[in-house]
Every structure is written in structure tokens, then in C-alpha cells.
């Protein structure tokens, strides 16, 4: 069954039709790529899926639930995790604080209990902290737990964001250009990490990505957007050779890729 099923999605900003008639499916355990030139509407699509924007037309179904009209934080609680192109962390805070912020929905205590420091809240805080340390250790970031995010090199900030999203226990990840700003070696390593995460955590992934070798290597299926519409879809090798895609996107930026 589909994890994400988007039908006829469209959104208008004033006179600009940013997305139109977009149908996208992501099935269980797939890593799906979303490519397209800048301004094609990829991030706008993410924002519609997450409820940042309210689409003008169409439906977004996550597993059994219609999610259009529901606020972002409720969608997240269904098991969706999202990263941002420019890093969705609180950069002025240390890594550890961000790991705790990411587990907000998992903190099972009331506001009042937290303010009064009741035992339930203190115990929960300890659980969250242990969990954060485990994930940081796994990601090789444990030494940086007290460093302010903004002080870390860009690649590490990206990795920290992934760690934070994983801390929130997602089943489905939306990654917005996870390798932007990474070197080719780092991007390659990231591909391996992603494949491993999928195996270990049973993740399903939809990612916006420009780095073609990575897309070809890890994606099971690829959608290509252009001017807010689906230009093509198919297996990565097909898309890579698709004449219109090459013309619209690969042609201008990755002709030699």
C-alpha cells in the first residue's frame, strides 16, 4: 500500500500556479526521488504535504488518513519527519537541546507537570536525554553534543538535522536536498547512510535531490517536476535518459554528469 498518496495537487499564489495536477505515490520501504530545476515547485510540494501551505486543489493521503486541512504538528505525530534545505534546527542552541526539541511529541507529560518539575516530567526528560545520546553516538556526533549548532561545519549540521529527525521516531522521511553543500565523498557516504537507515529503521523516504549519482544509486523511483507539473516519472535510469528531463533539467545543469 502507499505510504503517501497525492492526487491532483495544485496550489496558486496570487497569479502564480506553483503546482498543478501533481500525482505522486510513495510505497512502503521505497526511497523516492523528487527532482527538477530550481523553482519547479519541489519545496512547495513538501510544504503542501506537511501542511505549511494549504493546497488549492487535490488530496494528500498519508497511509489511511486524509491530511489536507490538518496542522503540521498533527501530521508529524502520524510519523512524518522532515528536513529542510537550509537546516531546520535551532542553530543558536547546542546539539543536545535540538535533539530534545526534536522529541517534543514524545515527551509524555503535561505543561503544568513540566513547569512544576513533577516527577513524571523529570523521568521523561531523562528518557529523552538517554535516547538522544544513543542516536548521537550512533551518528558519530556524541562529542559535539554541547556545541552550538551554528558553530559546526555545514556537513555536520546536516548530519545533526538527520539525527534530530530520527530522534522523533519517524516512519516516513521527507528530505529536502540532504546533500546540498556536501562534497562528493560526503554525498556518497550519505547515500550509504540512507540505505542503512532504511534497513534498520524501516523507513520510507521521499527526497528532493540534485545530486544525480546519488539519485541513481539509492532511489527506487523518481519523479521530475518542471514549472509545477510532473514532467516524467519512472525508474532512475529511465528518468536519466528521458529526453524531456534531460532538456529541462539535466541538460542545463548536469549535461556531463
Amino acid at each position: 500500500m502507499s505510504v503517501l498518496e497525492v492526487r491532483n495537487l495544485g496550489i496558486r499564489f496570487g497569479g502564480l500556479q506553483a503546482l498543478a495536477e501533481v500525482d505522486i505515490d510513495v510505497r512502503e520501504w521505497e526511497i523516492v526521488g523528487l527532482i527538477g530545476p530550481n523553482g519547479a515547485g519541489k519545496t512547495t510540494f513538501f510544504n503542501c504535504v506537511m501542511g505549511v501551505y494549504k493546497p488549492t486543489t487535490g488530496t494528500v493521503q498519508y497511509r489511511d488518513e486524509q491530511v489536507v486541512g490538518r496542522p503540521t504538528h498533527e501530521r508529524v505525530r502520524l510519523g512524518i519527519g522532515r528536513t529542510f534545505q537550509n537546516i531546520g534546527l535551532v542553530k543558536v542552541l547546542p546539539v543536545m537541546e535540538n535533539m530534545l526539541i526534536a522529541q517534543h511529541a514524545k515527551a509524555r507529560y503535561g505543561v503544568l507537570s513540566g513547569l512544576l518539575g513533577l516527577r513524571a516530567s523529570l523521568e521523561q526528560e531523562k528518557v529523552l536525554k538517554d535516547n538522544a545520546l544513543e542516536i548521537l553516538d550512533f551518528m558519530g556526533l556524541v562529542d559535539y553534543r554541547n556545541a552550538v549548532v551554528a558553530s559546526l561545519p555545514y556537513g555536520l549540521q546536516k548530519l545533526t538535522e538527520i539525527a534530530a529527525v530520527l530522534a522523533s521516531d519517524p516512519e516516513f522521511l521527507l528530505l529536502d536536498e540532504p546533500t546540498s553543500g556536501m562534497s562528493p565523498e560526503e554525498a556518497h557516504a550519505f547515500g550509504d547512510l540512507l540505505l542503512k537507515l532504511r534497513t534498520e529503521l524501516n523507513l520510507t523516504v521521499l527526497m528532493i535531490e540534485h545530486h544525480v549519482p546519488l539519485v541513481v544509486r539509492v532511489c527506487d523511483y523518481v519523479y521530475c517536476l518542471n514549472f509545477g507539473r510532473l514532467l516524467a516519472e519512472g525508474r532512475p535510469e529511465e528518468i536519466r535518459r528521458h529526453p524531456e528531463v534531460v532538456a529541462a533539467y539535466l541538460g542545463e545543469e548536469h549535461a556531463t554528469a
Binding site: M50, V52, P71, T72, H73, V76, R77, G81, R82, F84, G88, L89, V90, K91, V92, L93, E97, L100, I101, A102, Q103, H104, A105, A164, S168
Partner: peptide
């Protein structure tokens, strides 16, 4: 933490379920 996160980055805060 939720209040800090909202101050710094509302979009990211919402994406963490806040």
C-alpha cells in the same frame, strides 16, 4: 524548548511536532 524553537524557526518547530 518549544517556546525557544518557535522564536528561532517556526517552520522547523512545527516539523518537530510542536
Amino acid at each position: 524548548r518549544a517556546i525557544f524553537a518557535i522564536r528561532e524557526n517556526e517552520l522547523a518547530a512545527a516539523s518537530f511536532g510542536i
